[in-house]
Simulated scan of single mutants.
Amino acid sequence: MTSLNEIVRQHKVTLLGGAALLLMTGVAHAGVLADLGAAAYKAAGSPSYTTVIPQGYRLEIGGKATPVSGRDSCLTDPAPPSTHLWWMGGHPVSGNQCVVIGPQTTQVVVDVYGPDGSPTVETWKVVRQERNGYPVFGLQRENGEYIAATK
């Protein structure tokens, strides 16, 4: 029988990504997922991680699912000093229009696409917190609104 610690170690990157996503969606209490995320973070030796949002990924902005892109190269390895890489959407893509959030990133430049497909350039603040013993972050627009994952 596989122990909980072994399962957590096997899925630590997925759970860490879920932890980041929980803050982005504004979930006030994460219940079991937060507990598993904290266990994964501790089992992995408290790693730092890089989050990558690929071009065209949809985030909830102003209550609408909105495609975004960035100005960074899309990574296949974690950005130092990260030890883990997490892709929103689950799989890497190539190119140079990703939003990359490393452990020391404080802001990101993002192209937000309107209904007509035209981009608006925004600079988002990376807001870092700790939740249940592991780090999470949120993305905050210049107007103070937080970005959320689409439902």
Rank of each mutant, 00 (worst) to 15 (best):
L139N: 03
R58S: 01
T25Y: 07
P47C: 02
G138K: 00
G90M: 02
V112Q: 06
R71L: 13
V126R: 03
I7S: 09
G95N: 09
G56W: 01
K64Q: 12
L33A: 06
V112F: 01
I7Y: 11
H91T: 15
V127C: 05
G17R: 04
E142C: 05
A79D: 10
G37S: 12
A79F: 08
V93L: 08
G18W: 03
V109W: 06
H91Q: 13
Q10D: 11
A149I: 15
V13I: 11
Q10L: 15
S48V: 12
T83R: 04
R128S: 07
Q97M: 10
P119Y: 02
V112I: 08
A20R: 05
G56I: 09
Y49A: 09
S73I: 12
P54C: 02
R9N: 04
P80N: 11
V136A: 04
N132E: 12
I7E: 07
R141C: 05
S48T: 15
G17W: 02
A148R: 14
I7H: 06
Y113K: 09
G117V: 12
M1S: 15
V52D: 03
T105R: 07
H91S: 15
T14G: 14
V126L: 05
A38F: 00
D35I: 06
I147K: 03
Q104S: 14
T14C: 08
R131L: 10
V108F: 03
G17H: 02
T105C: 03
G45Y: 00
I101H: 00
K42Q: 12
S94F: 09
N143I: 05
N132S: 14
T50L: 00
P67D: 06
M24D: 07
G70N: 01
Y134W: 08
G70I: 08
T2F: 10
R9D: 06
E130Y: 10
S118K: 13
A43Q: 03
P54E: 01
F137R: 04
Y146F: 14
V126I: 11
A148C: 14
A148N: 13
T50C: 02
G56T: 01
H11Y: 11
E6D: 14
P103N: 11
A39Y: 02
K12L: 11
G45P: 02
R141S: 03
A34M: 08
A148D: 15
A19T: 10
